[in-house]
Design a protein around this nucleic acid. Structure first.
Lengths: 102, 102
DNA sequence: TCATCATTTAGAAGATTATCTAAATATTTA
DNA sequence: TAAATATTTAGATAATCTTCTAAATGATGA
């Protein structure tokens, strides 16, 4: 979970994920779309890989990167814990009825 | 969006959010649950506030913190963009039929 | 085999972050 | 009004992060 949020805490990395949504890409093609050196992008890809957000496969000279959706589901589940179920008792609220404020 | 992911990129802050899920709390009560000084927790609360993940209300001597769910929805929407709709054309995959690999 | 291309690794510099201690602010109560 | 309580602000330090340049690795094609 730590690696996951860390990987997402960078706009370049989030853009990479959005790019991969439309199909797999090589490291070079990804780098070409940013105003940043290839080593920097390589490092970003590494962090995304450590978080299991992407997978990579070498094909000859090229390395193809692809989205790994299963981990996205894990985060989604983390967020959904905060959505109260319709049946749930309402939480105490900061905004109370003005008439009852002392 | 940047502030949002930044705020989530820390396990203390994520724990605070999970605690607030069960009801509002004062800054002091939150701090008491961590092995960390009050100024540090105060700083974490500030980052959560900047990200609009929590709201705070002063009641006399105390400051009550509460979850602000509307921003959670924004993140949730960001993640959902990656979930392919059932009708969508399948993306190119790295794992292809082994029989067809050259 | 040698030059070239795609990508990564290594190492460094500057920026950002988490945490601490000390001090300030604001509220309550004696 | 003075002391006590709740919380924040200020400033410092150590760790982590982003990005760069230079060099290494590994595959392709002349």
């Amino acid at each position: 979970m730590n690696n996951l949020f860390k990987a997402l805490n960078d706009s370049t990395r989030r853009e990479i994920l959005e790019m991969l949504k439309d199909g797999d890409m090589t490291a070079g093609d990804i780098a070409d779309r940013f105003d940043m050196t290839k080593p920097s992008i390589s490092h970003h890809l590494d962090l995304l890989k450590q978080a299991d957000l992407v997978a990579s496969v070498k094909k000859g000279q090229f390395i193809y990167y692809s989205l790994n959706m299963t981990v996205m589901d894990e985060i989604l589940a983390w967020f959904i814990q905060f959505k109260p179920t319709p049946a749930e008792k309402p939480r105490i609220r900061l905004q109370v009825n003005p008439r009852t404020i002392d």
